[in-house]
């Protein structure tokens, strides 16, 4: 299984994602430089990591969508390749229209870094198969523009297609305003595309996947991806 971690200028969770894939899950992992004109077809999974691509000037992810590598990533995604966008990666996927909606400034107007509970809404995706139904994962968030927004029609479509994968919730899974850290519509923390091969989420599963920490909830997401790829089931 070949994994690629995209490096935009300003990516800063690239090393963390690389570390988890390569050193924790022992997967063959390569860097993908943003300027490269690379054939991505040999990869099974492309990760767009967190950070501040191109400084996130203008709007998070707005400049990254135009980078050379994104043309290849879009082609890769359109041919069914698995793409995981974490935090800034999610923002880039949204800007690049690989996922619907938008990520806007947190309603607290502040950067938020803390571990929050998220409820897994759909465990039949290629990214969540290992998460038990409706289970609550504790995963850190670290973002300033992480409030998910989509219009009512779009939201209805997401819900109907079961594209909402994660929602912010309370410790026992209660999805209420009280446990919405950033003002996301419907407490949405992560979504998947209709084809089921591109997922973006604001929480950082790579921050709770290293055995040096007691919390390993993030491993479930990586394990799900690995398992679905190994079993050869197409997304």
């Amino acid at each position: 299984m070949n994994c690629g971690v995209v490096v935009f200028p300003g990516s800063n969770c690239d090393h963390d994602c690389f570390h988890i894939l390569k050193h924790v899950f022992k997967l063959h992992t390569e860097w993908i430089w943003h300027k490269g004109d690379m054939d991505l077809s040999r990869f099974d999974l492309i990760v767009l990591p967190g950070g501040f691509s191109y400084g996130d000037y203008l709007r998070a992810g707005a400049i990254a969508q135009f980078s050379t590598v994104m043309k290849d990533v879009i082609r890769f995604a359109e041919s069914g390749g698995r793409v995981l966008g974490i935090c800034n990666g999610f923002q880039v996927l949204v800007e690049a229209k690989l996922l619907p909606g938008a990520l806007i400034q947190n309603n607290t107007q502040k950067f938020i870094c803390k571990t929050v509970p998220v409820r897994v809404e759909n465990t039949s995706t290629a990214f969540t198969g290992e998460c038990a139904g409706e289970s609550v994962l504790n995963i850190p968030i670290a973002h300033h523009q992480g409030s998910y927004f989509i219009d009512p029609d779009g939201l209805r479509q997401l819900e109907e297609n079961r594209q909402v994968v994660f929602r912010y919730c309370g410790p026992s899974g209660e999805v209420t305003d009280e446990f919405n850290p950033n003002g996301s519509v419907g407490n949405i923390a992560g979504i998947i595309n209709e084809a089921g091969n591109v997922m973006g989420l604001m929480p950082h599963p790579e921050r709770c996947a290293d055995p040096a920490w007691p919390n390993l909830d993030g491993q479930l997401i990586f394990k799900s991806i690995i398992k679905s790829l190994q079993s050869g089931v197409s997304a």
Partner: peptide, 13 residues
């Protein structure tokens, strides 16, 4: 400190 990313780089025990 919640306004500071205190976890990036995966070293903060």
């Amino acid at each position: 400190y919640e306004q500071y990313d205190h976890m990036v780089r995966l070293n903060t025990l």
